[in-house]
Design a protein around this nucleic acid. Structure first.
Lengths: 241, 241
DNA sequence: CCAAAAGTGTTTTGTTTACACCCATGA
DNA sequence: TCATGGGTGTAAACAAAACACTTTTGG
């Protein structure tokens, strides 16, 4: 591959965005997944590696707009939530030159995307990779570091902010939400106390009972009430779990 | 996929770092200050405005290294603490073109710098500006937005991390530390309970009593014990105040 | 009527808050 | 010995954890 003069080796650093997209499979046990793209194009850096969706920032393009664009173009996903994570610019992180990446974290409702699971994807195509598998896989560039920053942020932020709900389907049971928290925080949560605490904030509104003929009593379904949450914030409260 | 395309020739955004440097004047009442530079150079953007210290990232220079360099060159200050804050890239934020700024927050012990207070500085020179004054002053670029992001981060982070101590002199009394927290958090803290809670973490070690002949009983002086703090973290604890 | 999963009430435990009191120093 | 600010003990209020129990469904 020719390094050099043509596109990348400028005296000024190049700017990209990369997006860590999380989704949750509502199976039992529930699984946290991250959206990855298989790098193609023979001769380019990290050919055949899994990488985070991302790309260059266009001229006069806002950073978050760029992140959302890449998400749409590369991952065909609309985020329920997106936030800037951190910017990675260590020299040597990209073999093509001095490339600075502004990383974002996005949460999507996995049931609203059409992305296949499985890791036998074609180059250029995308997959939902279980986060637990990723200790075994080398990602392109410093994407493992970006991913672990995102995981840390998700796990700490979901304890005070209702962003965990952005990983759930539109309506969900309290027990499913608890299972999400248990999986992501890596510890058991008391069923009774979790329900009491979550409902105490008055930011969930009840829908109709679920009907899937599984065993046991059907659970009540709830949905997030954004207006009520804004009200909670105004009173100085938070969504502590 | 645009990454790796050799035909993706485009005008690149420029990358800068800006640093929000906080310091505290141990006067009564205690004052939080931010380090600002007066912009000079007739004909340049925002001439005569106050601005955060900052500048261009050099080729193959790490972002935090660049921030520390600007701090040293422009502000003659060594930080007790520094962290990346966020990256600002809204189109139009810099009249000179598409400039993306990676913002850092730094904390310094104000008694270890030689920067003068007062706002009648020469262009190119620096001052410690009380944060409370800054509602009245227009800063250059979007530096008011960067500053308020930094303030928010400082205020929220100091409740779980001992970074407030990085604004204090090497040794300090518990009451002075409480006054710092009261000023920054904007509310009163119970004297008895603050002391109990702060000391309960076992990350402060006692020095000798202070001798300044002020009225009242001389306070015990304490210093932060970094090793003990690491131990606390290992046990899953935190420095909650 | 039994198993399975959802929903609820109450006691126990620990933490936070409030408040009162004592101590050491300089004038 | 008094004013001033620093250091401490303890009971009340509150919130978290633990646990046992009731309800609703399908087979």
């Amino acid at each position: 591959m020719k390094r050099g003069s043509y596109t990348y080796d400028f005296p000024r650093p190049t700017v990209t965005v990369d997006v860590v997209v999380f989704g949750v499979d509502m199976t039992t046990p529930l699984e946290l997944k991250v959206l990855l793209i298989k790098r193609g194009r023979a001769g380019t850096a990290f050919e055949g590696y899994w990488a985070l969706p991302g790309g260059f920032v266009d001229k006069d393009e806002d950073l978050e707009v760029a992140a959302r664009r890449e998400l749409r173009e590369e991952a065909k996903a609309e985020p329920a939530y997106i936030e800037q994570l951190a910017t990675f610019g260590k020299p040597g992180r990209d073999p093509r030159g001095h490339v600075i990446s502004v990383a974002f974290m996005a949460l999507v409702r996995i049931d609203q995307t059409e992305i296949e699971a499985g890791d036998d994807a074609e180059p250029g195509s995308e997959t939902w990779m279980p986060v637990d598998n990723l200790t075994k896989i080398d990602l392109a560039f410093d994407h493992d570091e970006i991913l672990s920053t995102a995981l840390k942020r998700l796990r700490s932020k979901m304890r005070w902010h209702p962003i965990g709900i952005d990983l759930m389907p539109e309506t969900f049971s309290i027990d499913d939400l608890r299972r999400l928290y248990e999986t992501l925080l890596g510890r058991e949560l008391n069923r009774r106390n979790f329900r009491r605490k979550v409902l105490s904030h008055d930011v969930l509104s009840c829908a109709e009972s679920r009907r899937i003929g599984g065993p046991g009593r059907p659970a009540e379904l709830w949905r997030f009430d954004r207006a009520a949450y804004e009200a909670l914030l105004d009173e100085g409260g938070d969504f502590e779990v």
